[in-house]
Simulated scan of single mutants.
Amino acid sequence: MSAAATTTATQPSPWAAYLKSLQEKGQRKIDELAQKDSFDVGGRQYRRCKITARQHQELEDMRAELAELKTADAKKVASVLFQIYQKGAQYYLGMAGEEFLQAPWDEVKAIVDACAWRTMHGSAFL
């Protein structure tokens, strides 16, 4: 292999750098939201609720199911992921099913992710 080919192979692609920057921005948003106890979702206020051990286990079981799914079954993957977020919104925010369906997806997804992160890592890491 030539020196030029080796150099090219070890440098990250512009696409990889872009994806990394998106991931970093997403983590900063989760860090910011995880510090909050109340949220505005679609013009309505919600307070973060601590979840029970049983609720946490239910969400973790759903995440495990998601991890076991074959990516070829994209419809099932999407369905389980949607259920995780819907159940997370119910547990963390007290958000009813119809409220979840009407909520702006980008807002509710980021908030549920932040609540899950805070639950997993505790407030000591905020």
Rank of each mutant, 00 (worst) to 15 (best):
A4M: 12
A4Y: 09
Q11M: 15
Q11F: 11
Q11S: 11
Q11R: 14
S13P: 02
S13H: 09
P14L: 05
W15Q: 15
A16C: 08
A16P: 06
A17E: 11
A17I: 14
Y18D: 05
Y18C: 04
S21W: 14
S21Q: 15
L22I: 07
Q23L: 12
E24H: 06
K25A: 15
Q27W: 11
K29R: 15
K29L: 15
D31L: 09
L33G: 03
A34C: 08
A34E: 05
Q35S: 08
F39L: 09
F39S: 06
V41I: 15
G43V: 05
R44L: 11
R44M: 10
Y46G: 03
R47W: 01
R48V: 08
R48M: 01
C49R: 12
C49W: 02
C49T: 09
K50F: 03
K50A: 14
K50R: 14
I51D: 08
T52A: 10
H56R: 13
H56W: 09
H56G: 00
Q57F: 01
Q57H: 03
D61N: 15
R63G: 03
L66S: 04
A67F: 02
A67E: 09
L69D: 04
K70C: 06
T71Q: 12
K75A: 05
K76R: 15
V77W: 04
V77M: 06
A78D: 08
V80I: 15
I84Q: 01
I84H: 07
I84W: 05
Y85P: 04
K87W: 01
K87Y: 05
A89Y: 00
Q90G: 02
Y91Q: 05
L93F: 00
G94T: 02
A96P: 06
E98Y: 02
E98A: 09
E98D: 03
L101P: 02
L101H: 08
Q102G: 10
A103R: 11
P104Y: 08
P104F: 01
E107T: 04
V108D: 09
A110Q: 08
A110L: 00
I111E: 02
I111Y: 00
V112A: 14
D113E: 10
D113Y: 03
D113R: 01
C115P: 07
A116R: 01
A116I: 10
R118V: 05
T119Q: 11
H121K: 13
H121S: 11
G122A: 12
A124N: 04
A124C: 05
A124Q: 11
F125R: 13
F125P: 00
L126M: 14
L126I: 12
